[in-house]
Design a protein around this nucleic acid. Structure first.
Length: 964
DNA sequence: GAGTTTGAAACT
DNA sequence: CAGTTTCAAACTC
């Protein structure tokens, strides 16, 4: 509805998602034909300045402003590569104000071979208010700008502003008329009010580039590329960082590339003007950044003007893509490779119906090509991630206010054309997430409900997955809500990429085993339901963007495969996302995972309402082409508190039973009981129900239907027919309260519990828990940390070194030889003085009894007392002298203790692990289901066995019955 | 928070 | 492989 929305958003998309991008042909562009490169000049183009009409490509006086917005960028020249795609007749998608810049003049620039550079996304992105457009050194004032009009020349009935570059090239700025546009903030002073969008076209030598910058745009920064000011500014900026490094970023603010048909004129009519695509950007240093838009669009931050209600799809539509980043900028950093953004066929988009409509329109324009290889660009709060199609990225939006969700939906709707969906979460940062999904033909939109998107989907490739918050969305607008609800889950359908909100942690998984192997019965859920982890992850050292960037560079083309590194190297990407504040616990969104990806989402449902923190946890297991596996989880988990995962216990978390460490024990205890009870119920229900039917269909959830009762949701019989796989999936996930523990547990597995404090190892030795667990340090207090993406090389080297010393260095230390066996420390401990009753002992810490593998002296960590808490143990240690075989005493009071929520959680985790594995293997649903049940049976056997040993079997038996 | 203890990891 | 050193977490005060 609100046009404003549109304005706020900035997106750059290639109109044609489908059409394979001609790889950046930016040749023409700015190539620094040396002239330009040399330029440190700023060109200011004001209407006034430009005396001559550009039609012919006349030169205009150029004023140099270095000072203009980006002094630092002086050198960088902004070049706009030609968009070869322009020709694509696609209907102009962009409704938002667009600015087209047409460069004329020496059109014949020797085509330069574009270098591919990575794109880096900068965090801070401030919307630029100024109307002026700055390109590189050149600043262009909008013709419309009062008083300056003189230079504007009409092209194709469009008013053009001429800009003359120092080298004598003439640039024309043309405003296209966009119907909708009256952006809140007219971009460059749009001369014609009518056009909401000011389009600037730059054509050189007949090549036309269209950039659309909606007013009020925010900046997108492409390192080494071009910066476009939201207000129509295009500037080339040189990043402060690497001065020479060539990372001079160019930022483009608020520019949306239009897929132009080649002719600038097209801009005038939105429809006529195909959205220009931004294919290549060249930085002053002559590097070219390629953005493959084939289908994908680039989005450059948009501010979240979420205000629009989902209902108003129209407006949203108008603004093609809206990125609402409240504050954040998007920076594209290029590590090495190109950044390619592909759009995947849109399937989902459903979130906002209204949006969908818009989407459709846009998509239609873009429709056409299906991007074969997709790479995705994901943006979230200022962070962008590029992912090769192979990779999966999951964003779980932080639970933000529900409203945000709605907004997000809207944004998506608008953007759909581009295949990129933006989701904005009102929450703190007004995080916006963009997701583009490659078309995954295989999975049709699972989202049944999402039908709305269907149209678009055909063409659109981008899928936006919104995790978590489904419920909230509804809140914003009822209408939407329904759709949203359905959609939210649906989103997942074919998308390969899942995005999460910021705050994720990335964890490379050394191997699947990590997940699978870890069956920590004892896994504890550190968090109390009430307290979710929160969000705090944001502070993490590594940002998704960074991660993304690297991927891009490495993988851009083929795969993200990073170089060689050992497995570990590839892994990279576990992203844990913080929970969205708003999200509703209930929703479990599952996104259809690409074959390669497996994902489990768990949502803590308990507090159904808005627990701001209610975290939803999503766990994705991703396998790279190399076979490297990554686990991605949104960590809702409060890592900080969680108990220690000691080194070597990758993924295995058990903290609780032994010690309720950090977490407030009190709450924890209560919660545990409740959770336990819920878990039991769940199990019963599941069993009772036909498994197939019994399981709640995630689909349903996916569809967005929130389970009625959060807490209760155990079985939603509603859709009886869910794929078995899904059922299991959901079951595991969905149980609101129940799941939480599981989620926590998972989170614990996935996310590390503690933050290291390494000072001398640079976090590149196994001393470092983070490193040992295959994680990057985040939010740690370590010194001189190299365990991050900034030191990927060193890190890889260290990993290799560790693997050389011990090929199993990154494998879980604690595993169960057989599914039904007790977990054991593979290597055994070597304690001498602690009696294996302190956390110094790895066995003890993992809550497993010492085994014959251990070489400990004076061991007191007997099997019979795994449950004991430290206090008990300590007391025993004082007085006891038992030896490993001891037995004993249990009162029936303890009967429950064996089937604690931890145990339940662990069981669930194990089941989930099975699912994940099978998904990864593309195992049939039936098999998966069977495996899962087997897992359950095994777990129960263990529990029972243990209980029997203790003499307490009653409860266990009951549970068994249930299970059976 | 500083200092001590502990045992795994790393090194010889 | 054994012994020693290094390291960071666990623990104590």
């Amino acid at each position: 509805m609100d046009p404003t929305m549109d304005t706020s958003c900035i997106t750059i998309e290639s109109l044609d998602d489908n059409t394979p991008l001609p790889e950046l042909s930016f040749e023409d562009f700015l190539e620094p034909t040396q002239d330009e490169t040399a330029t440190q000049h700023h060109m200011e183009i004001d209407a006034l300045d430009s005396d001559e009409d550009g039609a012919s490509g006349e030169e205009h006086s150029i004023s140099i402003n270095e000072s203009l917005n980006t002094p630092q960028f002086k050198r960088s020249v902004v070049t706009i590569l030609e968009d070869k795609r322009l020709r694509t007749p696609g209907p102009a998608v962009l409704k938002s104000h667009a600015i087209k810049v047409v460069t004329e003049g020496a059109g014949a620039v020797a085509p330069v071979k574009p270098q591919i550079t990575d794109i880096k996304i900068l965090k801070n992105f401030k919307p630029v208010s100024s109307n002026t457009i700055k390109i590189g050194n050149t600043t262009v004032a909008p013709t419309s700008s009062p008083g300056e009009t003189a230079k504007g020349m009409p092209l194709n009935s469009l008013t053009m502003t001429q800009i003359k570059t120092p080298d004598g090239k003439v640039l024309y700025l043309q405003r296209s008329l966009s119907a909708g546009a009256a952006a809140k903030q007219p971009v460059v002073t749009a001369s014609t009010p009518t056009t909401s969008k000011a389009a600037v076209t730059v054509s050189s030598g007949g090549a036309v580039h269209h950039l659309v910058a909606p007013a009020g745009l925010q900046k997108a920064i492409l390192s080494k590329a071009v910066n476009v000011g939201s207000t129509g500014l295009v500037k080339a900026a040189v990043p402060g960082k690497g001065g020479t490094s060539g990372t001079t970023p160019v930022t483009i603010k608020g520019i949306t590339p239009l897929a132009a048909k080649g002719v600038p004129s097209s801009a005038s009519s939105p429809t006529s003007t195909p959205s220009a695509k931004f294919q290549v950007v060249r930085s002053s240093d002559g590097k070219i950044i390629k953005i493959k838009q084939a289908s994908s669009s680039m989005i450059i931050n948009s501010k979240a003007t979420t205000t629009t209600t989902p209902g108003a799809g129209n407006n949203a539509a108008a603004s093609a893509l809206k990125m609402s980043l409240t504050a954040g900028n998007m920076g594209l950093r290029k590590s090495i490779g190109q950044v390619v953004i592909k759009a995947a066929p849109p399937k989902q988009a459903q979130r906002d119906v209204s949006n969908t409509s818009t989407l459709n329109t846009t998509t239609t324009g873009t429709s056409g090509s299906s991007a074969p290889s997709g790479k995705m660009l994901v943006q979230s709060t200022g962070k962008q991630i590029v992912v090769s199609s192979k990779n999966i990225i999951k964003l779980s939006p932080k639970a933000g206010a529900t409203s945000s969700i709605t907004n997000t939906s809207v944004s998506q709707g608008s953007s759909p054309t581009k295949g990129i969906h933006a989701v904005q979460i009102p929450g703190k940062g007004g995080v916006v997430q963009y997701v583009r999904v490659l078309p995954n033909t295989k999975e049709a939109a699972n989202s049944s409900s999402t039908s709305t998107s269907a149209k678009t989907s055909s063409t659109s490739k981008v899928t936006f997955v919104r995790s978590i918050m489904p419920a909230n969305a509804s809140t914003s607008s009822p209408t939407n809500a329904s759709s949203a609800a359905t959609k939210s889950q649906s989103v997942g359908n074919t998308n390969k990429i899942i995005m999460k909100t910021t705050g994720g942690s990335i964890v490379p998984l050394p191997s699947m085993q990590t997940l699978v192997s870890k069956r920590a019965l004892g896994a504890t859920n550190t968090r109390s339901p009430g307290s979710n982890s929160g969000n705090q992850e944001s502070p993490r050292k590594h940002r998704l963007t960074d991660l993304n960037i690297q991927h891009l560079s490495a993988g851009d083309e083929a795969s993200d495969s990073s170089e060689a590194g050992p497995e570990t190297k590839k892994p990279r990407f576990v992203i844990s996302v913080a929970q969205s504040s708003q999200q509703q616990p209930q929703h479990k969104q599952i996104v259809t995972r690409p074959s390669s990806i497996q994902r489990v989402t768990v949502q803590g449902a308990n507090s159904n309402k808005i627990a701001p923190n209610s975290a939803k946890k999503v766990y994705n297991l991703v396998q790279s082409a190399n076979g490297v596996k990554y686990m991605i989880c949104n960590s809702g988990v409060p890592q900080s508190s969680t108990s220690a995962m000691r080194r070597g216990y990758t993924g295995y978390v058990d903290s609780k039973t032994r010690r309720p460490l950090s977490i407030a024990p009190m709450q924890h205890a209560t919660n545990l009981q409740a959770l336990q009870a819920q878990a039991k119920q769940r199990i019963r229900q599941q069993q009772l129900q036909n498994q197939p039917s019994a399981v709640q269909p995630k689909a349903a959830q996916a569809t967005g239907q929130p389970t009625p009762g959060n807490a209760s949701d155990n079985a939603n019989p509603q859709s009886a027919k869910i794929l078995p796989g899904k059922q299991l999936f959901e079951i595991l996930k969905s149980p609101p309260s129940d799941t939480q523990p599981a989620a926590d547990a998972l989170a614990g597995m996935a996310s590390r519990r503690k933050h290291c404090n390494c000072s001398k190892s640079q976090c590149l030795k196994l001393y470092c828990d983070c490193f040992a667990n295959g994680e990057f340090c985040q939010d740690c207090t370590c010194k001189d940390c190299f365990n991050n993406l900034d030191y990927e090389v060193e890190r890889e080297r260290a990993i290799r070194s560790c693997l050389e010393r011990n090929p199993s260095a990154f494998k879980p230390k604690i595993t169960a030889p057989n599914s039904g066996d007790m977990r054991l420390h593979n290597k055994g401990c070597n304690c001498k003085r602690s009696g294996c009753l302190k956390n110094y002992c790895e066995c003890y810490e993992a809550k497993i009894p010492c085994s014959n593998m251990c070489k400990c002296v004076g061991c007191r960590n007997m099997e019979d007392r795994p449950d004991m808490d430290m206090d008990s143990i300590d007391s025993l240690a004082d007085g006891e002298e038992t030896n490993k075989a001891r037995d004993d005493k249990q009162s029936q009071d303890d009967s429950d203790r064996y089937l604690t929520d931890d145990v339940v959680e662990a069981t669930i985790m194990c089941m989930i692990s099975r699912i994940v594995m099978h998904e990864k293997q593309n195992t049939s649903i039936e098999n998966t289901e069977r495996e899962v049940m087997e897992e359950l049976g095994e777990s129960l056997n263990q529990i029972i066995t243990f209980g029997k040993e203790k003499g307490d079997s009653n409860e266990l038996v009951d549970s068994m019955d249930l299970v059976s």
